[in-house]
Amino acid sequence: MIPQTFDYTAPATLDQALALIAQGAKPLAGGMSLIPMMKLRLAAPEHLVDIGRLKELNYIREDAGALHLGAGCTHYEVETSPLLRGKCPLLSETAAHIGDVQVRNMGTIGGSIAHADPSADYPAALQALEAKIVLRGAQSQRTVAASAFFLDTFATALEPGEIVSEIIVPVEEAGAGASYQKMAQPASGFAIVGVAARLRRSGGKIAMARIGVTGLAGRSFRATAAEKALENTAGSAAEIQAAAALVAQGVEANSDLHASAEYRKHLAAVYAGRALFAALARTA
């Protein structure tokens, strides 16, 4: 629990931070993953740049039908934001599932997704929301879809020198309902499996289905086969169960001390069903 020596800078502006990061400094936001790794000496960055204090990265605002979250928003802020709760409740609901009160007070949405833990909660919701992720470097800015951002276990589309600066999610349309359901690993609180479901009903049919899955595999993903199976159906219990059963199909599932691959695949179907039923109930 004793880290190696490191330099620490808390710059006043994002540009200053990005300039240091471009030179190889490691960004520190809430520190919920990085600091424990440093204390165990599994990580030994020489220079930390604290971006968790930058006001520039801390905002939640609505703009042209979309919601923009600064990467520095804490999970608590995401969980309790009246704007998000009203217009994108799935993200708030997901944030409420993360870790514990202390983690939600410190951890940030940008830090979490940049870390890309395969069992983190947000990626399921961001996949289901077809979120866009804004990546900034000292001289660059680009936007990638969530589906293209999460590449593998701890691997993202971030290039050296880049940070996650903003997350963009849609304002939910009328007739939409969403839910995030997970089985938590009892020690860490991470998702053994977590499923975020979004549905929109129109004219008695499911007009849109989006399903994001975390914990099951090396990366979060959208269960497109299940989505397709559900769209244009009436959303009967049998149709939902049939779609949920497709979520884990063909997936190479994770296996660890806490759950075998086989069990995870089973849970994915169970929790997909639960998330879909809950989402459907909220479409009313």
Partner: peptide, 17 residues
Amino acid sequence: GTIAAVGQRLIEGAAKS
């Protein structure tokens, strides 16, 4: 060592990747 204790859930995925 330390990686065995904290990386347990990641080792299989890491090895495969």
